[in-house]
Structures are given as structure tokens and as C-alpha cells.
């Protein structure tokens, strides 16, 4: 527990002192979304139709890109080796890191999403569902993406390889995440879909950190 708390506060501190890592994904999210009305059409009916998908694709890309360097600095500085040789199970600091990362990069996306949903002409009654879907979905995206990030940590291949590995794994979360919003827009039964999204989060949050820890061990040469 002390190791978890120490790792969590350390990760929060590191991210807090490099604000670009927090702000850039947020701006990326906003910028990508504002491309769609310009590229497709600013017509309100059309925007409302594509908005669930646009919001979710943008969130997915923002989370994924923010994860590209998740373990890189730790690896370059030698912190990762300390983590892997410590008597504490690797999954403990890894979980702390994922939590810290989501709190400072995923959660802000959730918080600004109502504004963007409104700009995409979604009806105000679904804004709560938009936030809820991202609240359940973005942590799952963080964990799944971290698996890819752990497997590619020493490779210096940039984001493309990560995308090739991770995007197919993101598809279920994308489908149900955007699906919840669309169901809400059409007035369908939202709780059932939210439950599925919650189940996906439970699955990834419970098994994901183990896979991330295993990935880090493999990348270090095991």
C-alpha cells in the first residue's frame, strides 16, 4: 500500500510538472473535433448525427497518443529497471501510474466533453450521457493502450506501431461508447448499454494492469 501511494503521488507530481503532457491531449481532442464541421458540413442535423462517433474517435485518438510515451522517460532514466527489480509486485506501481495518467489526461477529456457535444449540436438532454460514456470508457482506453505502450517501450518507433497494435483492441469500447450516446439521442434504453461499457471497464481494469506489467517485463528482456 505504501508503494502504491508513493507511486501514485510521484506520478501525479511528474505529470503536474510537465503540464504539456496534460494540456496537449486536451487540445488535440478539441482540435480534432473542430475539424469535422469544417471538413464535412456545419449543418446541425448532420453534425448531431455524426457527433457520437466524432466525440469518441477523437477521445480515443487523444488517449492513445498521450500513451505513446507513457513508459519511455521511465525507461530512459532507468526508473523502469528500479520498478522491475523491486520486491514490490510490478503491477502495483503500474496500476498507480495508469490511475495517475487517467486522472490527469483522461478525466479532463470527460470534463470538457459537454461543451464539445453542445458545439456538435447534440441535444442538451444527452450531455450527461456523453460524460458518463467517456467516464466509463476512457479509463478502459488508457489501460488497453498502456499494454501496447509497454510492449513497444524500448523500440523508438513512435506512435504508428502503437496505433497498429492498439486500435483493433479499442473497437469494442468505441462501439459501445459511441453506441450509448446514439441510443440516448434516439431515446432508447441507455442503462443496459452503460452496463456493457461498465463491464468492459471492469474487465480491462482488473486484467489490464497485469498484462501491462507482463509487457514491461517482456520488453526489458524476459
Amino acid at each position: 500500500m505504501t508503494a502504491f501511494r508513493a507511486a501514485l503521488s510521484r506520478e501525479l507530481l511528474v505529470l503536474w510538472r510537465s503540464p504539456a503532457e496534460i494540456i496537449n491531449p486536451l487540445f488535440f481532442f478539441v482540435m480534432v473535433i473542430s475539424l469535422f464541421p469544417l471538413a464535412i458540413s456545419p449543418k446541425p442535423e448532420l453534425l448531431a448525427l455524426i457527433a457520437p462517433g466524432v466525440l469518441w474517435v477523437a477521445a480515443l485518438l487523444a488517449v492513445m497518443l498521450s500513451l505513446d510515451g507513457l513508459f519511455r522517460r521511465d525507461q530512459e532514466s532507468g526508473v523502469l529497471e528500479q520498478l522491475l527489480t523491486s520486491p514490490v509486485m510490478t503491477v502495483v506501481p503500474v496500476t498507480a501510474k495508469l490511475l495517475a495518467h487517467w486522472l490527469l489526461t483522461g478525466l479532463p477529456l470527460v470534463l470538457v466533453s459537454p461543451v464539445l457535444a453542445h458545439m456538435l449540436q447534440l441535444p442538451d438532454r444527452v450531455l450527461g450521457v456523453v460524460m458518463l460514456s467517456l467516464l466509463l470508457g476512457t479509463p478502459a482506453l488508457t489501460v488497453i493502450g498502456a499494454i501496447g505502450s509497454a510492449l513497444t517501450v524500448g523500440l523508438n518507433r513512435g506512435g504508428i506501431l502503437l496505433a497498429v497494435l492498439v486500435l483493433p483492441l479499442y473497437i469494442p469500447v468505441l462501439i459501445f461508447g459511441a453506441g450509448v450516446i446514439r441510443t440516448a439521442v434516439e431515446g432508447g434504453p441507455v442503462p443496459g448499454v452503460l452496463a456493457i461499457l461498465g463491464a468492459l471497464l471492469a474487465l480491462t481494469a482488473s486484467l489490464g494492469p497485469l498484462a501491462v506489467a507482463a509487457g514491461l517485463k517482456i520488453s526489458s528482456g524476459n
Partner: peptide, 19 residues
């Protein structure tokens, strides 16, 4: 194993907690 964002004290405290 020293992160540049952190002070020596913070770095050391973390590695100690981990080790």
C-alpha cells in the same frame, strides 16, 4: 533512475518506497 521532473529527495523517497 532519476527523473528530471523530481527533486533528489522525491526521487530517493520513491525508490526507497519501491525497494
Amino acid at each position: 533512475g532519476v527523473r528530471e521532473e523530481l527533486t533528489p529527495l522525491e526521487n530517493l523517497k520513491f525508490t526507497c518506497a519501491l525497494g
